[in-house]
Write a protein that binds this DNA or RNA. Sequence first.
DNA 1: AATCATTTTAAACACTTGTTTAATACAATC
DNA 2: GATTGTATTAAACAAGTGTTTAAAATGATT
Lengths: 214, 214
Amino acid sequence: MSSKALTDSTVQRLLHTAIEVFAERGFRATTVREICARANVNVASVNYYFRSKEALYSQALGLAIREANERYPIAQAQDKALPSEQRLVLFIDNFLHKLLDDSHLGYHSKLITREIAEPTNAFDEIIASAIIPQFALLEDIVRQLLGPDAGHNTVKRCLLSILGQCLVFKHSRSVVARLHPELIADESAIKQTAEHIAKFSLSALSQLSEIRRD
Amino acid sequence: MSSKALTDSTVQRLLHTAIEVFAERGFRATTVREICARANVNVASVNYYFRSKEALYSQALGLAIREANERYPIAQAQDKALPSEQRLVLFIDNFLHKLLDDSHLGYHSKLITREIAEPTNAFDEIIASAIIPQFALLEDIVRQLLGPDAGHNTVKRCLLSILGQCLVFKHSRSVVARLHPELIADESAIKQTAEHIAKFSLSALSQLSEIRRD
DNA sequence: AATCATTTTAAACACTTGTTTAATACAATC
DNA sequence: GATTGTATTAAACAAGTGTTTAAAATGATT
């Protein structure tokens, strides 16, 4: 494969279409033919440019992670000069928008959360490039909010409490859309939801930091 | 189909095997042949007893919901004589155990959360018999904890904050198992996690109830 | 024991799957 | 402009899909 493949329109179209279809249907339920039909390329192209359906999936997943991180950089929340409370608000707002962005990234986060829910061989890639950085950043923030006396497991559980509050809107989106659509109706609703999660979590964290360690 | 079908061993084996395989692979990626092989019945049985693969899925889903509700009844948390704080603890403990039970119900909750993540035609069944009752019960508890002045959207968002903290252990189980396996290692770890979620949420709710409405 | 409806079975159906092939089209280099 | 390496195409491949069929096995009723 020549080096111009990076800008090759066929390869690019295949990758981005693959992100869409794999996100919609999952790996096994996705057919190579559907990807090719949507991308307007011949069926054989998948095995010509990538070696197999699985290799295409792996590459598409990697691209999805990179593009998601480009579009929603966590730089703001990383600024250690800011007060921890504000950094938490920034993190949650960023994370929630990344999850609920339909315009461009809906497929990216869907594909990523799908891989998490049902890991394939590409799972290690996800862990290393999409999960661990987020975990580390949030852990940094939470540790500061809880104070130095907080036990290891307490910190971990608080991380998951915060992430879970965000992720529920992705994983159970169908339920939210059915029962409480107004919570994710538009940009301002998402922002309010992010503020709620931040307030909810900050209340809990401040109270936990007063009490004890484990 | 005769009425004895209810106790027919072939039908029963098909249904329970279907719960397993559909939970593992999802609807489209599941093959009728694999279900039949695991259940030790002929391939044609699916179309003989149920009319199609889709009908089998629908029936299996309904059975999963019924069995999950039987095994983890929410009766305790419904007891209005108990203080709201304790009812919340009971609810979370029950819900988390239901989600993380591997011995019998792992497949049931997996199938249910999968249907939520990727709704099929059977989605309405899930909403009505598995979601709404849980939502209503938790809403009752949360409303008492927040007081009568709490706004509608605040209540809803608090519901999702609590449910999300539990669900993350199911949806992102692969990540938790990889990065923080000790949090769900055994029965006592799960209990501690449930206690954390309850404490975390009660702290937040008590603080929110002091402040304001929306 | 014979009859009958029900259940189980192996085989086949038509269709879709990922992948391969071999022929064609294209575009740059000499 | 012929040559050569790359890209695209239609067609075919073997394996797997849900479903149907028609024959065989089963078990209860007469």
